[in-house]
Simulated scan of single mutants.
Amino acid sequence: MSSLPTLDEVLADAVVVSLPMRVRFRGITTREAMLVRGPAGWGEFAPFPEYADDEASHWLQSAIEAAWIGPPPTLRDRVAVNATVPAVDAAQVPALLGRYPGARTAKVKVAERGQNLADDVARVNAVRAHIPCVRVDANGGWTVDEAVTALHALTADGPLEYAEQPCASVPELVEVRRRVPAVRVAADESIRRADDPLKVVRAGGADIAVVKVAPLGGMRRLLALADELSEYGVPVVVSSALDTAVGIAAGVAAAAALPDLHFACGLGTGGLFESDVAEPREPVDGALGVASVTPDPARVADLAATPERARWWIERVRRCHGLLEQRDPQLFV
């Protein structure tokens, strides 16, 4: 397939689900998504509700790629994944890590609103008691001065593999790298939500790029960006956008197709859901295998969103599909 499927084709077998979460993550306790089915399998359309249609249309392009074209050829059959630790109390850390058997790396959320640096340090140190390789993710929540103070505090008892998006803007990331050279900086939002994903790298604001399939427009778009980043000597970490099992499968497939994969990927987020659209795939020895995912009809029925929310998602797809038609109907040539 080289052309965009029609709106009717996209919506023909679409279902909208609402997944309950074990803990609050990114400020939400349920994750809504639309699943679409095409000749190559299933795709996922799940841009966060606050995203405008232009940004959300990239997520629809990704869903269409997965369902109408399928994954690219892979180079490995397993992908190492990190444990993901939300901004929970340190006492909850051991139970959370139990969902990631064999994980050798953990990503810890920090800079949560309503919490303080002492909470972050306690959480990171609680993780270190079980997993020595720790990376932190601030989601752009610090100023430069706050980031500098926090990174010194968070490395007082051990190193960090990297700090993901410590500040929101590219100039701030450049300054953090200058002032805290001992901690590598990874860019996430500065890449996936930027008109020019390479801007942060050209400016010297990132040692590592965190890339996600859906926001970039699909698996092949991710691979193309990773190839460009490699020319700057910047490796990538493939991560989840809080995906259902369908979206995780696309992320694993993209990671498995990369020529080089130096870091554990942030694709082990399925454990954050109380229930998923398919049987949960727990990491084995810290890695996920490459495999297609078909939603389980009984699970999908149990997780079905309300009719009102389903209509909201259908209208959103309608608008995003129109944007894709205007942008380039030959999206996948």
Rank of each mutant, 00 (worst) to 15 (best):
T105N: 14
R177Q: 13
C133A: 15
W142F: 12
V79F: 02
V148T: 10
E175L: 12
G98T: 03
K107F: 00
A163F: 07
R123H: 06
V134Y: 00
N116K: 11
P181K: 06
V174Q: 06
E164Y: 09
K107A: 04
V170N: 01
A118E: 15
D120T: 01
E161V: 09
P86M: 09
A126P: 04
V124G: 01
A206V: 14
G102F: 05
L160N: 13
L96F: 00
V108W: 01
V174S: 10
A182I: 08
V93A: 08
P181V: 03
R202A: 14
R178L: 05
A156F: 03
V185D: 03
N82G: 13
Y162L: 14
L97M: 00
R184V: 00
D137K: 08
E146D: 15
D207H: 15
I131Y: 03
N139P: 07
K107D: 00
S169M: 08
R99K: 06
A122K: 08
Q92V: 06
A209W: 08
L117W: 12
H130N: 04
V210P: 03
H152M: 02
D188W: 06
A118T: 15
V124A: 09
V144L: 06
A209N: 09
A95P: 05
R135W: 07
D77A: 11
G205F: 11
V170R: 10
D120F: 04
A122M: 06
T105P: 02
Y100T: 01
P86N: 07
A106D: 07
A80P: 14
Q115D: 08
V185N: 04
S190H: 00
V211Y: 06
V144Y: 10
A103L: 10
A156S: 14
A163E: 11
A80D: 14
S190G: 13
I208P: 06
P171E: 10
R179F: 04
L198Y: 04
E172A: 15
A150K: 05
A209G: 11
R184C: 01
I131M: 03
P166M: 08
G98A: 14
R123D: 01
T155D: 10
A90G: 00
R179Y: 05
G140Q: 07
E112Y: 07
D145L: 09
T105C: 15
D120M: 08
V211G: 07
T155N: 08
A147I: 04
G102H: 05
V79M: 11
R135F: 11
H130D: 01
T105L: 12
V85F: 08
A95W: 05
D145R: 13
A182Q: 15
A147H: 04
I191F: 08
Q165S: 04
Q92Y: 03
R193A: 15
P86T: 03
A106Y: 00
T84E: 06
G204D: 13
E189V: 06
G98W: 05
V134K: 03
S190P: 04
